[in-house]
């Protein structure tokens, strides 16, 4: 009984890892490499946030750190910075899990957007503090806005595609051990 529940959790985690790697590979596809695209969205963060707000145990911190660090390296970002910011954001989101469970989606979305805005701000402050050449502000704001806009479709995908729902009040004790 416990055994199957444990393996199930690991299957979920593997699925999350697979999806994350898929997102990374897709963003590497050279579709007109010189073309200028809209900045964002950070699908990987949307996915992580959606899973964290539903079943936090499916996105354990070490896995999140490993995936985002890999993404930092592969996607040519300053390594470690965005990962650190994401770890902070995920920590804040985790503290909201119990509250979000009772809230409608609109509130969840606004919490996500606020946390994202805070994260982007913190990243920018650190970039300035270390005199790293940073992007001009408008594309960064656009990046945050697009990522926030993409959040509902990602949640729709986790709900319908992955069949991950928020834990209902009655099954709160099981917490993914039994579905």
């Amino acid at each position: 009984m416990t055994d199957t529940a444990a393996t199930r959790i690991w299957v979920w985690r593997a699925a999350y890892t697979g999806l994350a790697l898929g997102v990374m590979v897709l963003s590497l596809v050279p579709v007109g490499p010189g073309h200028l695209r809209l900045p964002g969205p950070d699908l990987l963060f949307c996915l992580t946030a959606a899973i964290t707000l539903r079943r936090p145990e499916l996105a354990p911190l070490p896995l999140v750190v490993a995936l985002f660090l890999l993404a930092d390296f592969v996607l040519d970002r300053p390594p470690g910075l965005w990962t650190a910011v994401v770890v902070g954001m995920v920590h804040v989101l985790r503290a909201q899990v119990i509250r979000v469970r009772e809230l409608p989606f609109l509130s969840e979305w606004s919490i996500f957007a606020l946390v994202l805005a805070g994260g982007v701000l913190v990243e920018r402050v650190i970039l300035f503090a270390t005199f790293t050449p940073a992007q001009p502000l408008p594309p960064v704001l656009l990046f945050a806005a697009i990522t926030a806009l993409v959040y509902p479709p990602v949640v729709l995908f986790t709900n319908l595609g992955l069949r991950l729902r928020k834990v209902a009040l009655g099954e709160a004790n099981m917490l993914g051990n039994r579905t």
Binding site: L61, V65, L69, P78, P79, G80, L81, T83, A84, V87, G88, H91, R94, A95, I98, I126, T130, T132
Partner: peptide, 27 residues
């Protein structure tokens, strides 16, 4: 969560510091 939250916060803090260390090394 009452019990594990402080531990978790410390852990998160340590991870963030380590990651920022990586970033500073890059810088």
């Amino acid at each position: 969560s009452e019990f594990s939250r402080p531990v978790r916060t410390i852990l998160v803090g340590l991870i963030v510091v380590a990651l920022l260390g990586v970033f500073l090394m890059w810088r």
